[in-house]
Simulated scan of single mutants.
Amino acid sequence: MTTLDPIDQFLQGNVFAVVGASDNRQKYGNKVLMAYLKSGYRAIPVNPTADEIEGQVVYPNLSAIAEPVHGVSVITPPSVTEKVVREAIDLGIQHIWLQPGAESETAIRIAQEAGVEMLHSGPCLLVALALR
């Protein structure tokens, strides 16, 4: 029996939310969104201050997304990350990837206590998808 590494396990889904998505192409919130889209994944941008990013409808939070989400990439300040992780857990989302700079020890602990698969303190999604 082969066990998938955590990144492969995260990428087994088809629908991903990008919390902290940005319409600024220089920001990682945009780069992560575009990496998903260019790799053929369904990526849903989440940002409370935008309506559309890269032609995609933007949702103000995870709770507003009507379809099931396999995983969440988080590109937010650590204090916001904790709120995002709690919301994801409440919604039953089992895969969370904290992109570099979004890490929070409290968020990591919350996810671990909830039994959620959490990627953190490692490569970002951009590197992982570029290696595929």
Rank of each mutant, 00 (worst) to 15 (best):
V19Y: 01
S39K: 14
A66M: 13
E103A: 07
Q9H: 09
N14F: 03
E87R: 09
V116G: 04
T76D: 02
V18E: 01
S22G: 01
F10E: 11
V58P: 07
I53S: 00
V46G: 01
N61F: 02
H95G: 11
I96T: 09
G101W: 13
G71W: 08
S39E: 08
S79C: 12
N61H: 11
G55D: 03
G122D: 05
R25Q: 14
H120Q: 15
T2G: 08
R25T: 15
I110T: 15
V15R: 13
A17R: 04
P77R: 08
R25Y: 11
P6I: 11
L131V: 14
V46K: 00
V18N: 00
K31R: 12
T3P: 01
L119Q: 10
G115E: 06
A35W: 05
D5N: 15
V19C: 00
P100E: 05
V127S: 04
T81C: 01
I108G: 03
R25M: 13
A102G: 03
L11D: 08
T49D: 06
V80S: 09
V80A: 14
M34Y: 03
V32M: 01
P78I: 05
K38M: 15
G115Q: 03
L11T: 08
V74P: 01
K27D: 06
M34G: 07
N24H: 13
N30E: 07
S63W: 04
K83V: 10
S104Y: 03
L37V: 13
E87M: 05
M1V: 05
D8V: 03
